[in-house]
């Protein structure tokens, strides 16, 4: 079980962050990912393994300023 944006999510098996983001339909050029209180650099998405108990906050930016 991991927590994503305040919701519990069941993971059948461990998954790489990059794969999780793609599976969930996130556009990786428009997001910032915080895991357990710290930001995950984009360069580490492909090597970050999500474990049970991880808390993720994925911020998706929309246009306008």
């Amino acid at each position: 079980m991991i927590r994503v944006n305040g919701e519990d999510r069941q993971l059948e098996k461990e998954i790489i962050l990059q794969d999780f983001l793609e599976r969930e339909g996130y556009q990786t050029g428009r997001i910032a990912v915080e895991k357990n209180g710290g930001i995950v650099p984009k360069s580490r998405y492909a090597e970050t393994l999500l474990h049970s108990g991880d808390v993720l906050e994925i911020v998706s930016f929309v246009g306008g300023g």
Partner: peptide, 18 residues
């Protein structure tokens, strides 16, 4: 961060924090 384009927003946030 006061950009308009979402990719620029994400770039700056990730860049500053990283």
């Amino acid at each position: 961060e006061a950009f308009d384009v979402p990719e620029s927003k994400a770039m700056l946030v990730n860049g500053v924090l990283g």
